[in-house]
Design a binder for these strands. Structure first.
Lengths: 139, 139
DNA sequence: TTAAGTGCAAAGGCTTTGCAGCATA
DNA sequence: TATGCTGCAAAGCCTTTGCACTTAA
């Protein structure tokens, strides 16, 4: 066992262990859309002792702290990505599996419409479009 | 074991067993948003011998035939509902758990925008808004 | 000492699958 | 007989949890 604390980043008031730092680093490098096992695989390349339980525990922590966003892009598992200032959504190509981000001002309008018409106050919109990306459309 | 075939409805060219009929009936009555175990629970009230495996197998069949739509409204499980002619989306109240349907023409516009701007051809939009329904907003 | 984090293994919960028996043609 | 559906039980997969040990303050 070796837990190395690291003071140059902070995760709320929680201790920053080497594992946490490593996981956040990988999430940032990956630019999103990692599932837990893939994150674990990449982390294990740099720290052979890290465990899957630690990955899950910290993903949950990051999520609760708002550092990371969890989304279910398929029916198998959750995907995680560093939370960015602006909300975005996903395009999922059912042919090649590629996941791309997109933004649209229409989502905010839709949320406003729903509040007016249904009285429902939305705090989060989960939106992804499934179909064929530019490349696969041609093929 | 008793498999009773029933000719007065059809499921593509597949045999309509008593179990399939029962499951479709319950899905129709429920007006959507059932998860597999709840569907099983309700089915078992009328047919004590039906099995959870049959529920899952037939949900998958219905899904493949386009009779039923599967959506993950939370991270635990999938929810199933009879597919209706017009596409709709869901409002999920994080306070009381209530799930409501809504439609919006903005989704079609968004899909068109994405096709123009990103070259992505969407075949399905998965959209739900999480927040507080009218009742829970006041409380 | 006290509170918190970790690895390991076991357990949970949802879903799928293997198998033998039954149903229909 | 041949194909397809079913129930049951077991297995799969993702995720969480219990426990003992380690770390840091």
């Amino acid at each position: 066992m070796r837990i190395k604390r690291n003071a140059d980043i902070s995760i709320a008031d929680r201790p920053v262990t080497a594992q946490r730092r490593l996981l956040l680093d990988i999430l940032k490098e990956a630019d999103g859309h990692l599932h837990a096992k893939e994150l674990y695989r990449r982390a294990a390349e740099r720290d052979r002792e890290i465990s899957l339980a630690t990955v899950y525990r910290n993903l949950r922590l990051f999520k609760e702290l708002g550092l990371v966003r969890e989304t279910r892009l398929d029916d198998l598992r959750c995907y995680y990505e560093i939370r960015r200032p602006s909300e975005h959504y996903h395009l999922i190509c059912t042919a090649c599996g590629q996941v791309t981000d997109f933004e649209s001002p229409l989502v905010a309008r839709l949320v406003a419409d729903v509040e007016l018409e249904c009285g429902f106050h939305a705090e989060r919109a989960v939106l992804h479009l499934e179909g064929r990306c530019g490349g696969c459309k041609k093929a």
